[in-house]
Amino acid sequence: MRVLLADDHQILRAGLRMILADAPPSPDDETIEVVGEASTGEEAVRLAAALHPDVVLMDVAMPGIDGIEATRRLRAAGGQPAGERPAVLILTTYGDDARVREAIQAGALGYLLKDLLRDDLVRAVYGAARGVPTLDPRAQQLLMRQLHAPAPASPFDALTGRERDVLRLIARGRSNKEIAAALSLSLGTVKGYVSAMLPKLGVGDRTQAALFATRHGLE
Rank of each mutant, 00 (worst) to 15 (best):
V88S: 02
Q80I: 15
G188Q: 14
E178F: 05
V190N: 01
G110P: 04
H148V: 14
G173L: 11
L183K: 09
L5E: 09
H216W: 11
F212N: 00
T40F: 02
L12N: 03
I90A: 03
L218C: 00
P24F: 03
Q146P: 06
P27K: 08
D157C: 01
D54W: 03
D66H: 06
M144V: 11
E42T: 00
L218V: 06
A106G: 09
D136M: 00
I11R: 13
D96Y: 01
I179M: 03
A151Y: 10
L47M: 11
N176H: 13
V122G: 01
A108I: 03
G78W: 15
R138Q: 03
L112H: 07
D157H: 01
T40W: 11
R13G: 02
E33V: 12
R2N: 15
A70C: 07
L211D: 15
G127Q: 10
Q105W: 00
F156M: 09
A153N: 01
Q140Y: 13
R99Y: 14
Q80V: 15
A48T: 04
I32P: 00
H148L: 15
Q140K: 12
R72I: 07
Y193G: 00
Y111N: 12
T207H: 05
A151V: 14
R46H: 12
D136N: 14
S26E: 10
L187C: 00
P199A: 10
R101L: 11
V35N: 07
L185D: 00
V100G: 02
V190A: 08
I19P: 02
A14V: 02
A182T: 12
A21L: 02
T134W: 13
V190C: 01
L185I: 07
R168V: 05
S184D: 15
Y94N: 06
A106H: 09
